[in-house]
Computed example of a mutant assay.
Amino acid sequence: MNDHQAFEEVADFLAGTFHQDMGSPEQALADFIVENTKECLEFTLESLLVFMRTNTTEKEKEDFIKSYAEIYFPAMGLTPLEWLENVIGQLKEAVKTK
């Protein structure tokens, strides 16, 4: 997967999962994990890992995350990148148990 594909996949994941109609970010992620196959979780995880490894600056990554995820990060006490790292960790655990 190249960087461009990863950005497209991450945008789809963020916008499709963390939108204005979700109950909470935590519940939205839990629902995503339950509703999708192990293969889908692995693909999403790989896209997120490629996104995190790109040469894009932290600010650009954070702006990208904020533009697609309907989350108010200051209320969570996390930066968008810290939050995404937590999401990655939860997806890694979910892949192990699916």
Results as ranks from 00 to 15, higher is better:
residue 93 E to F: 11
residue 81 L to I: 08
residue 18 F to K: 03
residue 54 T to G: 10
residue 45 L to R: 06
residue 36 N to F: 09
residue 74 P to C: 01
residue 81 L to T: 02
residue 22 M to P: 14
residue 71 I to E: 01
residue 80 P to T: 10
residue 45 L to G: 05
residue 42 E to N: 08
residue 46 E to M: 11
residue 1 M to G: 13
residue 78 L to S: 03
residue 13 F to N: 03
residue 59 K to W: 00
residue 29 L to K: 10
residue 45 L to C: 11
residue 86 N to L: 15
residue 82 E to R: 05
residue 92 K to H: 05
residue 22 M to T: 15
residue 45 L to F: 06
residue 47 S to M: 05
residue 36 N to S: 12
residue 30 A to W: 07
residue 19 H to C: 13
residue 85 E to W: 06
residue 56 T to S: 11
residue 47 S to I: 03
residue 23 G to Q: 15
residue 62 E to I: 01
residue 26 E to L: 15
residue 5 Q to H: 12
residue 18 F to I: 03
residue 80 P to Y: 06
residue 80 P to D: 11
residue 73 F to A: 08
residue 6 A to I: 09
residue 10 V to Q: 09
residue 56 T to Y: 11
residue 54 T to W: 07
residue 53 R to F: 07
residue 12 D to E: 09
residue 94 A to I: 05
residue 93 E to C: 09
residue 19 H to E: 15
residue 62 E to L: 01
residue 62 E to Q: 11
residue 38 K to S: 12
residue 68 Y to A: 10
residue 7 F to W: 12
residue 58 E to F: 00
residue 14 L to G: 05
residue 51 F to H: 01
residue 33 I to M: 08
residue 61 K to E: 02
residue 74 P to F: 00
residue 68 Y to F: 15
residue 68 Y to E: 09
residue 61 K to N: 02
residue 95 V to H: 07
residue 30 A to D: 15
residue 49 L to G: 02
residue 59 K to I: 00
residue 76 M to H: 04
residue 95 V to F: 12
residue 54 T to Y: 05
residue 55 N to F: 07
residue 21 D to H: 14
residue 70 E to D: 11
residue 88 I to F: 12
residue 60 E to M: 03
residue 18 F to G: 03
residue 10 V to S: 07
residue 25 P to E: 14
residue 54 T to V: 09
residue 4 H to R: 15
residue 80 P to N: 10
residue 49 L to M: 09
residue 28 A to H: 13
residue 82 E to I: 03
residue 11 A to R: 07
residue 89 G to T: 06
residue 70 E to N: 06
residue 83 W to H: 04
residue 7 F to N: 11
residue 27 Q to P: 10
residue 1 M to S: 13
residue 13 F to P: 04
residue 67 S to M: 06
residue 5 Q to W: 14
residue 31 D to N: 15
residue 80 P to V: 06
residue 84 L to I: 07
residue 3 D to W: 02
residue 19 H to F: 10
residue 98 K to I: 07
residue 41 L to D: 07
residue 91 L to K: 01
residue 71 I to G: 01
residue 34 V to F: 11
residue 85 E to C: 05
residue 46 E to Q: 09
residue 26 E to N: 14
residue 12 D to V: 07
residue 61 K to Q: 04
residue 76 M to D: 00
residue 50 V to Y: 04
residue 37 T to S: 15
residue 17 T to F: 09
residue 3 D to F: 03
residue 12 D to A: 13
residue 75 A to R: 10
residue 96 K to S: 13
residue 36 N to H: 12
residue 21 D to L: 13
residue 61 K to M: 02
residue 55 N to L: 13
residue 77 G to I: 01
residue 50 V to R: 06
residue 48 L to S: 10
residue 7 F to R: 11
residue 62 E to A: 02
residue 2 N to L: 09
residue 85 E to Y: 06
residue 63 D to G: 00
residue 78 L to D: 04
residue 91 L to S: 01
residue 8 E to F: 09
residue 11 A to S: 08
residue 57 T to N: 04
residue 8 E to I: 12
residue 96 K to E: 15
residue 8 E to K: 10
residue 23 G to I: 13
residue 70 E to Q: 05
residue 25 P to V: 13
residue 16 G to V: 10
residue 57 T to V: 03
residue 60 E to D: 12
residue 6 A to K: 04
residue 73 F to W: 06
residue 18 F to D: 02
residue 78 L to R: 01
